[in-house]
Design a binder for these strands. Structure first.
Length: 516
RNA sequence: GCCGCGUUGGUCAAUCGGUUAAGACGCCUCCCUUUCACGGAGGAAUGAGGGGUUCGAUUCCCCUACGCGGUACCA
């Protein structure tokens, strides 16, 4: 009987949730669900200097919006708590393992101050080696329990001298592991430095924490961004010394999401610069007060957001691009995840959203659209107004973003101001015959027995024929009267939803202007 | 610099040694629509370079180039 599959997403609460982070969550979630396992959220708040209030709650909110709710989290603890590393540190979880490593001879105390480290780096920096590492050769020249006499070390320790614990990496060894996406990856320990495991403030670094916590939480599979690949050997060494390499979770290093122009990781700045969101939801930096737009507020459906992210680095090989979350759970496979990074394409993202707007029932997103109307000061519920769902149904084909419903259908609820309508497209060709036609139309409209689009169209065309005017010459004026612009669904569909009273009212208003 | 990982159209990408190298987004043309879209039909556009291996390489191997990531008491 194999162990239950358990995966974790371990963000540090330092700001908005990046779309790459959401994709990592998604892949975690899909894999966990597919294997009937657990998906865990663990907060990596080991850097107190980067603590941002509200960030953790924000991450939870983003996951909730996406529907990627963890089975265990700080809010819903399971049997493996606590789920914040700061709390785990308070329980002394990390210190004991760090000390165990020192006792085993796999780690050591280092007393170098930040200034001394800085000095070392500038001192040993050369053209060939711009970033000297605290490693097996340099550690002999530094202040640590390997270079200092035992008595000195004990004295420093007794005096409470600030110190860190570093891993002791032995040179000349090949470390390799099998990445679930990349296959065999090999490193030489010669290039691995003596990473700090436990900081002077007693907090573990990511390196120690991720290993200890993954073990204690019985994580079986660990997905993370490709930027972590270079530190994998440190984690493997730690696993070997602490818990046994065979107990280590299977690693998968996900490809990066790149900026659309040029190269490099997609950053919040790229979004600002190019005009698209990078965070899942609006994020307001509590320190600067700066607000960064999110996909949700930009008018994205969680269904399309996830679908789009899933396809950024993965496909099922069939050419299918539209997937429900259930289909993704069923079909997702790490073997089909790309190795190379993918440039983010906002146009394609909007296409996904458009597809989902079309395929989902409008009632599914009516609430959110309603809030956009509200924000625009448009009351969709005033007496006599068309039903919002009918309106949305009619215009959804032309909306890529939920926010576009306002521009596309606002006129249903708020009559265009006749004074501001641009009548120039019809004015030059306006004549007495047309004027008469609309006067006659106004007279006939109240007598239409069945107020629906087909009937209206039939009546309208019959009248046009009787007046010997091409219907085409009358449609644009009618559209301008009802809509206020050259856009929107079929005019008769619009009139049908508007109802007789409002239709007549709008025609009359503008007709008066055209006569002048 | 060093280490690691990558590299099929503008972008996302299929192909797991033999194909006219799919499909999608975007772009262009046409049709539909007496608005704008949707939809439909077409079109332009791709294997970084060089060596091997092989009857045959986009596919396997090596080198080069390029890109990215890492090289913190940040994650």
């Amino acid at each position: 009987m194999s162990k239950k599959v358990r995966l974790r997403f371990a963000p540090s609460p330092t700001g908005g949730l990046h779309l790459g982070g959401v994709r990592t969550v998604l892949y975690n979630y899909l894999f966990a669900r597919q294997h009937h396992g657990d998906f865990i959220l663990r907060i990596e708040d080991t850097d107190q200097s980067r603590y941002v209030p509200g960030a953790e709650e924000y991450i939870l909110d983003c996951l909730a919006w996406c529907g990627l709710n963890p089975d265990e989290s700080p809010l819903h603890p399971g049997a493996y708590g606590p789920y914040r590393q700061s709390q785990r540190k308070a329980e002394g979880l990390y210190l004991q393992y760090a000390q165990q490593l020192v006792q085993q001879g796999h780690a050591y105390y280092a007393f170098d101050t930040p200034e001394e480290l800085e000095e070392m780096r500038t001192h040993y920096k050369t053209a060939e080696n711009p970033s000297p590492q605290y490693n097996h050769v340099l550690r002999t020249k530094m202040k640590n329990s390997l270079s200092l006499p035992a008595e000195d070390v004990q004295r420093l320790l007794d005096a409470g001298t600030p110190h860190v614990i570093r891993i002791k990496v032995m040179p000349g060894e090949e470390i390799h592991f099998t990445d679930l996406i990349r296959g065999d990856v090999t490193f030489s320990t010669n290039g691995v430095d003596d990473k700090v495991l436990l900081k002077a403030d007693g907090m573990p670094t990511y390196h120690l924490a991720v290993v200890v916590d993954d073990h204690l939480m019985e994580i079986t599979h660990a997905f993370r961004g490709e930027e972590w690949l270079p530190s994998a050997p440190v984690h493997i060494l730690l696993w070997r010394h602490l818990f046994g390499e065979d107990k280590m979770p299977r690693w998968a290093h996900l490809p990066l999401i790149l900026k659309p122009d040029g190269n490099g990781k997609l950053s919040k700045r790229d979004g600002d610069r190019l005009g698209f969101p990078v965070f899942a939801m609006n994020w307001k930096d509590p320190n600067t007060g700066e607000m960064t737009k999110g996909f949700r507020e930009m008018g994205f459906l969680p269904e399309s957001f996830l679908n789009m992210l899933a396809m950024l680095g993965w496909n099922d090989g069939s050419g299918q691009e539209l997937f429900t979350i259930e289909e993704l759970i069923q079909k997702f496979s790490l073997e089909r995840v790309h190795k190379g990074g993918a440039k983010f394409d906002f146009e394609k993202a909007k296409w996904f959203n458009h597809e989902w707007i079309k395929r989902l029932p409008v009632t599914h997103y009516q609430g959110q659209v309603q809030s956009y109307f509200q924000a625009a000061g448009i009351d969709t519920a005033k007496p006599g107004a068309p039903r919002l769902d009918s309106v949305l149904e009619l215009v959804k084909d032309r909306c890529h973003l939920l926010t576009e419903f306002v521009q596309q259908s606002g006129f249903f609820f708020q009559a265009p101001d006749p004074a501001t309508i641009d009548l120039s497209p019809v004015r030059p060709k306006w004549n007495e015959a047309k004027q008469q036609f609309f006067i006659e139309l106004l007279n006939q409209l109240p007598f239409i027995k069945t107020w629906d689009a087909p009937t209206l169209e039939k009546e309208f065309k019959e009248m046009a024929a009787a007046a010997a005017i091409k219907p085409g010459d009358l449609l644009l004026p009618l559209r301008l009267m009802l809509v206020g612009g050259k856009f929107g669904p079929g005019v008769f569909d619009i009139a049908a939803l508007l109802g007789p009273q409002e239709t007549i009212h709008r025609i009359r208003q503008v007709l008066g202007l055209l006569r002048a």
